[in-house]
Structures are given as structure tokens and as C-alpha cells.
Design a protein around this nucleic acid. Sequence first.
DNA 1: AATAACGATTACAATCCTGAACGGTTCACC
DNA 2: GGTGAACCGTTCAGGATTGTAATCGTTATT
Lengths: 158, 158
Amino acid sequence: MAASARRLEDPPGSAFLLAALGAHAAARFAERIAALDVTPAQTGLLRAIAATPGQSQQVLAQLLGTPPSRLVGLVDSLADRGLVERRRNPTDRRLHALHLTADGATLVERIETIGREHDDAILRSLKDSERARLRSLLARIAEDQGLTPGVHPSYRRL
Amino acid sequence: MAASARRLEDPPGSAFLLAALGAHAAARFAERIAALDVTPAQTGLLRAIAATPGQSQQVLAQLLGTPPSRLVGLVDSLADRGLVERRRNPTDRRLHALHLTADGATLVERIETIGREHDDAILRSLKDSERARLRSLLARIAEDQGLTPGVHPSYRRL
DNA sequence: AATAACGATTACAATCCTGAACGGTTCACC
DNA sequence: GGTGAACCGTTCAGGATTGTAATCGTTATT
């Protein structure tokens, strides 16, 4: 009989801590933005459209790493609420260029505010210098792991 | 027209980085253990049983933060493969005490090995001293945020 | 002009989770 | 001691989400 009897409390590794904390942060953020009646997926799409307006759904789907069919429902839900517009491209009428409406733009602003509050809530136990250190470490891992900056990997196959 | 035009690349905050990296780490881990034909949820349950054997499903459900009905299927899938045993408690025949079989124990060992490899893969861009620093920062946040150590929050309402 | 390629959409099936209801068992209390 | 409440595990139906493949309209190719 080997020693085993590993306790549940000793964490199995930093990567697990990372995953657990990431899920926690994501869940908390989802709670916050629920007040605005948006889901994390919608938020990511709004952010992407705000960053590069006028793109086709195809391009956007590739950027986010999601099947195009999934974008349809997402865009629908935002378009129905008047936050996003599908503008047909006159020269190529297959394309739907996505743009934010005025309402959509102000919503993105609110989301960014909530994001900053969320950030503070999650990191409240760290001093500013420690926050900077953490951010730098995380950024290095993210780059090494090939994450596209500003895009949440959950669009891919989750 | 305000300045806006935030680029997608500048990350919206460390909490977002955390969430993105956590999702990435979780997805990669899921890929690894898929070779053993287990899901992350099953892995967490196996770990919990290994840490505190003989517990009832009710207690386990509360520890993991999941509705008991969700445990049933999880335990079923592991029991069908002979990794976990449900033992009726003779003094209180309502309870099902959960234990690992020999196969289950060796599987947990393999999962721990994979976990260490996974850890190295995620953190490969960091020196040992930096890994220690990161771990300490993450642990502090996790404690401050009230995460139960060793338990992945995704069992709760995801 | 015919056919292939392409963007967006729809249809469909598969998966997973939640919440309530259900049998079997034990406990509390009169 | 017997009756009803509480409890454990299970089951069941409903809802939400996602990926694959077929479909429709439009454009490019030859």
C-alpha cells in the first residue's frame, strides 16, 4: 500500500488553479453583465464588432474561432434588440457587414465599465505592484500558448 | 465622436486574461485526459473520492457544489467501468458510500501524472522562480474569492 | 451560359443540465 | 409502537446549447 492519500486541499498544480480561477472569474462576470441582459458570448461578439466594424460574419467567425452557424443566432439576438446592424454590401450582396448601432456603442461602454469593476473585485486582494506582476506573467503565458489577444477561447469547441 | 476605437488586441483586464487562460488550460487538460476516456467532471469526482473515500453522494454533491441528480450519472458512468463502487451502508441503507476500486486508484495515479505534464506544458515559458510567484498570487486570489481548494467551480451551475 | 465556389442561414440531432417528483428508508414524536 | 416528516438516491421531462450537414441566394470561373 503506497503512501497515496493525497488530500483534496493540496492543489494538483498551478494550471488547475488557473482553470478554477478562470472559471470563477468568468462566472462572476456573467453575473454582472446579466444585469444588462447580455451573455458572455454576446459580449465577446460586441467587443469584436466594436474593434473591427464592417467585417463579414465569415471573417468574424474565423477571428473568434467559431462555426459560422453559431454566429447567426448570436447576431440575431443582438440585431433584434437594435444593438447591431447587418448591412448588405452593395458590391457583393452575399456579405453582411456588421456594425454597432448607437445603442450598441453605449452598451459596449457600459460593459467596459463593468469589466473594470469586475477586474477590481477579482484582484482586490493584490497590491498594484502585484497586479502588474500577475498581468505580465499571465500575458507571457497567453502569448506562449498562442491565444489570440482579446478573444475568449470558449468560442472554440466548448 | 469620442476617441473610442479600442482595439481588440489590448486586453480588457487581467480578469479577462485569467478567464481566457483558464478556459484554455481546461480545454487542453480535457484533451489530454480524453486519451483515458474520462471527462474533466469525472476526473474531479474521482479526485474527490480518492481524497475522502466512503462519503455519501449527498456529502460529495455538497462538497463539489453540484445538484445530487447530476452526481448520479457521473457515478454511474464510473461504476459501469468498474472504477468506483457504491457500497450500501448496513446501518443506514439509504446511503451509498463511494469507494475507488483498484482500477480506479491506478487511473487516478495516471491522471495525476497527466496533470503534472499538463502543468509543465502550460507554464513552460516561465522560470521556476516565476512559477512560484504566479502560484502564490493565484492562491491568494483563490482564497480571497472563497474558492474551495481542489474543487473546480464549474460544478456549480454551468 | 453552365458550373463551381462562397456567404449566410436553416434543419436536425446529440449532448448536457436543472428542478421537480418519486420510491425506499430512517428518524421524531406522540 | 405507529404515524408522519425528513432524508437519500434516482428518475423523468423540459430547456438550453452546439456542431454537422443540407439549403438558398449570390458571385466568380471558364
